[in-house]
């Protein structure tokens, strides 16, 4: 029992540190979110200001903006900890690397996933999404963004400290997001047609469960590899 509480406690401390660190360095926090809003408001200029046109694309469009914005937030996840040597100190503290990997993913979700989901509400409404579809969109974004954070953390750990790692991490991560994009966007468009997209949401939840169990291992061994 006591080991359980220390594990949760350690996880909490790790997450809190990362959140505090990024909170102080507000650029890392703000740029991905600004990027998300900017990408979304570009679409009406490209497609049409007609709400009927925008409405049919709204789900996919917000999903693409989320994928891109969360991908650019990945670079900062390990960058400063790697360059200052803090990552090395954390590894040498003896804390299980699985926890470090999981904590980084949670911190990434709190810092970029959560604000994006919140901002998606006014943006979706401005694109003409109705209340029911909005709730489905938010649910799919919540499940999907958590998976994105988990996969992205592993990829971010793999590419930290490499040449042009900012672009590399995006190029490496995006192919893995395709299933999420498919299920997320389809869930939203189905809900707009009045169907409750149970299957799609179950798939998203299943992918999240898979990511929670597998990606911390990948992140842990990526951290160890990058430090060696």
């Amino acid at each position: 029992m006591s080991t359980d509480t220390t594990t949760w406690n350690t996880l909490f401390i790790l997450v809190r540190r990362d959140v505090l660190k990024t909170w102080r360095e507000s650029a890392d926090l703000l740029y991905p979110i600004m990027f998300f809003v900017l990408v979304t408001i570009l679409f009406p200029f490209a497609l049409s200001p007609e709400i009927l046109v925008l409405k049919s694309f709204a789900g996919g469009l917000l999903w693409i903006a989320t994928l891109l914005a969360m991908s650019i937030s990945l670079e900062n996840l390990f960058k400063t900890d790697y360059s200052t040597g803090a990552l090395e100190v954390i590894v040498l503290s003896g804390v299980p690397l699985l926890l470090v990997g999981l904590a980084k993913a949670i911190a990434n979700w709190v810092l970029s996933g959560l604000p994006i989901i919140i901002l998606a509400i006014p943006l979706a409404l401005s694109l003409g999404i109705d209340a029911f579809s909005l709730s489905i969109l938010l649910l799919s974004l919540t499940l999907g963004s958590a998976t994105i954070s988990l996969i992205g953390t592993a990829i971010g750990a793999l590419s930290v400290g490499l040449r042009s790692s900012g672009m590399l991490v995006i190029v490496l991560a995006l192919p893995f997001y395709i299933p999420l994009l498919i299920f997320g966007a389809v869930a939203t468009s189905n809900s707009q047609a009045g169907v409750i997209p149970e299957a799609e949401l179950y798939f998203l939840a299943g992918l999240l469960a898979l990511a929670v169990t597998l990606t911390p291992w990948a992140t842990a061994s990526a951290i160890r590899t990058r430090l060696s």
Partner: peptide
Amino acid sequence: SHNLGLADELTALEN
């Protein structure tokens, strides 16, 4: 290490 291993954004006490 000579890299110090302290996060720039946090205080010495927090680190």
